[in-house]
Amino acid sequence: MTEPHDSLILHFIVRAFMVPFIIVFGIYVLVHGEASPGGGFQAGAIVAAAFVLARLTLGREHAVNRFPTRVLIWTASLGMAVYLLAGVVPLFFGANFLDYSQLPVGWFNNIATHDETLRARGIFIVEFGVFLAVLGTLGILYDYLTERYLDD
């Protein structure tokens, strides 16, 4: 239950520099995780760190009201649903559970400028689901453990 500090420097640094750059770095770790160290878990943890930083310093109207706890719960559920759908959808195309090579995402290669195999696309879909699930869960943990939910 910490109150935000009404410091102009703190608000400027956090809102203009730290939170946007941390979120951009987390997205980079997510989408570049197939070619360099990274992945869904790490990206989720980094973006959740940005959210926690905003909640620690900016107070209610700038952090919590823009991204309230119920949105985080929906985010975690959406990530879990993405992962489960990536597992269930190949069943309708005659493949096994979680067999990414049968996912109907081949049209994406026509849009993108380079080809990738369907298994690599499936890995990215799964990593995105893991990213959303970890992000939402860490936000839920912080919000409930610090009792920010009380007058939500």
């Binding site: 995780g33 197939e34 360099s36 160290p37 597992g87 990738e116 690599a120 890995i123």
Partner: peptide
Amino acid sequence: IEIPNLVTAVQADFRSYDTL
């Protein structure tokens, strides 16, 4: 799998039940 990061490949494809 054709992605360079073998850790991601093993985690999300070979062991995707585990990750699920």
